[in-house]
Write a protein that binds this DNA or RNA. Structure first.
Length: 269
DNA sequence: CGCCAGGGACGAA
DNA sequence: TTCGTCCATGGC
C-alpha cells in the first residue's frame, strides 16, 4: 500500500519535517521520514522528483497532497519574499520547506505544549501523550500511536497531562480540550473568520498568547498571513530588518517568510 | 512593567 | 561530571 506523487518540486523532506513546524516525523537511517497523520503511520521518501508515501491508502492521495501543500507554487511565493539578500540566503538554506497543513486540534495542543520549551522536549511530551491516549497503529511490525481526539482526551485532567512532562502547561491543556469539546473553540467557525478575528478568538484561550495563536493559524488553519514570533524570529527581525514587522514586510506570504527565517536563524545562531 | 514557571538539551568548566 | 543557560512564552 503506497502512494506515489510524481514531479514534486520545491520539496525536501528533511527541511520540511525538521524546520520546527511539526513534531511527529522522525528521520530513518535511510534518510526517509516516518510519521503519523490522519490516524495513519507512513514512511515518506523522495528521490529528487517523486514522493513515495509507503503505508498510505490510495483514497487518501488528496489528503496527502494537501498535507504536504503540493498544489502551491513555491517558486512564485519565494520570489515575492526574496527582496533582501538575507531572505535569499534563508530561502536557499531552507530549500524545499513547505508549510504542512496539519490538523487543527493537534496543532493547537502541540503548540500550547511548545511554549518556552525545546523541540526535542516537545516531541517527547507529545509522544507520551499519544501513547497514553491515542489509538494503536501498526506499521511494518512496529506500534505507533495516533494523536488523540478531543473525545479521547475528554477525561484527561491537569494531573494526567503532568505525567507527560508538560509542567505548568498541564492546566492550559485541560482547559483547551474543554474549550474545543464545548464548542467555545470551533475549527469551522475559525475557518469562517478573518485571520484577525480568528486570532482574537484563539487569544481568548487560557495559555494561548500571540505566538501560539499565530502558529495555530499558520500550521493548523492555513493562514499564511500570520507571522509567529519566537526568540529566533525575534532575533532575526532585529538583526536583519532593524526590528521591522513581519506582516508589514511580507504581507500575505508572511508565514512562508517566517518559516524560512526561523530555520535559517536557528541554524546559524 | 517584571517575575516566574517543568524539565531536558546543550555547552562550558 | 556538574553547573548554568536556554528553550517555537504566557499568566499574573
Amino acid at each position: 500500500m503506497r502512494i506515489v506523487l510524481n514531479n514534486a518540486m520545491d520539496f525536501l523532506p528533511e527541511h520540511t519535517f525538521e524546520c520546527g513546524q511539526c513534531f511527529r516525523w522522525n528521520k530513518e537511517k535511510d534518510g526517509s521520514f516516518t510519521g503519523v497523520a490522519k490516524g495513519r503511520a507512513v514512511n515518506l521518501s523522495y528521490d529528487g522528483r517523486n514522493i513515495i508515501i509507503d503505508g498510505a491508502d490510495n483514497k487518501d492521495e488528496t489528503f496527502w497532497r494537501a498535507y504536504l501543500d503540493l498544489t502551491r507554487d513555491y517558486g512564485k511565493i519565494k520570489e515575492s519574499i526574496s527582496s533582501t539578500s538575507v531572505m535569499r540566503e534563508a530561502l536557499n538554506f531552507g530549500y524545499g520547506i513547505r508549510i504542512l497543513k496539519q490538523e487543527f486540534f493537534e496543532t493547537l495542543i502541540s503548540f500550547i505544549i511548545s511554549q518556552r520549551s525545546s523541540i526535542p522536549k516537545i516531541k517527547s511530551c507529545i509522544e507520551k501523550m499519544c501513547r497514553e491516549y491515542g489509538k494503536e497503529i501498526e506499521y511494518k511490525g512496529k506500534i505507533y500511536y495516533s494523536f488523540p481526539s478531543t473525545e479521547e482526551l475528554k477525561e484527561a485532567k491537569e494531573s494526567d497531562f503532568e505525567k507527560f512532562g508538560v509542567g505548568y502547561r498541564a492546566k492550559y491543556l485541560e482547559r483547551a480540550v474543554k474549550d474545543v469539546l464545548e464548542g467555545k473553540i470551533n475549527e469551522e467557525e475559525l475557518l469562517s473568520l478573518s485571520t484577525k478575528e480568528a486570532r482574537a478568538k484563539l487569544l481568548e484561550m487560557y495559555g494561548v498568547g500571540n505566538k501560539v495563536a499565530d502558529c495555530v493559524l499558520l500550521f493548523g488553519l492555513s493562514r499564511f498571513d500570520s507571522f509567529p514570533v519566537d526568540v529566533w524570529v525575534d532575533r532575526a527581525m532585529k538583526e536583519f530588518f532593524n526590528g521591522g514587522d513581519g506582516i508589514t514586510l511580507f504581507g500575505e506570504n508572511s508565514g512562508f517568510a517566517q518559516q524560512y527565517l526561523f530555520y535559517y536563524k536557528r541554524s546559524i545562531g
